[in-house]
């Protein structure tokens, strides 16, 4: 009866599939419910922040920057408190990265400012001499895609019950409520109001003018996202 499989392609394929899918069944599937609970103080991204996240993804910032602080003293000294699973509850996709050509960014919002990011994205060596990061000047003139960001917020709210328009308890005991308007026009107005706060901390006159005209340059959205990483 042996030498049986190599003559029977169907059963051979079944055998291979059983053996390879076993790891997935045991390791991956059963842990889903547990790992996805948010920690206290984790709130969903605003529409502007999501648009910034899309900019981050479109230019593959994650190719060089991680968002995962490992539990070592050398990492917590450099980047802050080590990362917790629940902090990523609203990260779709996750952006941990796999290589640090540049530093970790998981808590970059805690120690960098709008002003610093503006200078850095325009000309990295102006704030970090010796940096090998490219300048991203196109982000100062290209427009962020607010409508797609809004579409994503609506989608995760509907499909995955991400808690928009819900009171969320923050670490200091206060409550936060991330708004998600029912119509895109309302959302645009909210995004613009949020963008104006970012732009007021910036120096680039073209960007300031653009926001005054009601446009959202990519850099404004990106900085909103980076500032939200704490």
């Amino acid at each position: 009866m042996f030498h049986w499989l190599e003559e029977r392609p169907f059963f051979f394929a079944v055998g291979v599939f059983t053996v390879v899918s076993f790891a997935g069944l045991i390791e991956i599937l059963p842990n889903f419910a547990e790992a996805s609970r948010p920690t206290v103080g984790t709130k969903p991204y605003s529409t502007l922040e999501l648009a910034g996240r899309h900019v981050y993804i479109a230019d593959s910032c994650n190719a060089c920057h991680s968002q995962l602080i490992r539990p070592f003293k050398s990492e917590t000294d450099r980047y802050g408190m080590y990362s917790l699973s629940g902090e990523y509850a609203y990260d779709r996709p996750f952006l941990w990265g796999s290589k640090r050509a540049g530093p970790d960014l998981h808590r970059v919002g805690a120690y960098r400012t709008t002003d610093w990011h503006e200078n850095h994205m325009w000309e990295p060596v102006s704030v970090v001499p010796g940096s090998i990061m490219p300048a991203y000047k196109h982000m100062f003139s290209n427009q962020a895609d607010i409508e797609t960001a809004y579409a994503e917020a609506v989608t995760v709210n509907k499909v995955f019950n991400v808690p928009y328009n819900t009171n969320i308890t923050m670490r200091d005991g206060s409550t936060a409520n991330v708004k998600l308007p029912a119509t895109y026009d309302e959302a645009k107005a909210d995004v613009l109001a949020e963008a104006k706060i970012i732009a007021s901390g910036m120096k680039n006159q073209d960007v300031k003018d653009a926001v005054e005209r009601g446009e959202i340059p990519q850099i404004v959205a990106l900085i909103a996202y980076l500032n939200s990483l704490k």
């Binding site: 996805s36 699973s85 990523y88 990260d91 996709p93 996750f94 409508e147 809004y150 579409a151």
Partner: peptide, 14 residues
């Protein structure tokens, strides 16, 4: 709304 080809991952975070 938005770009027709954009999608969001079925899984979150960890």
């Amino acid at each position: 709304h938005g770009d027709w080809y954009h999608s969001v991952s079925w899984y979150a975070g960890t």
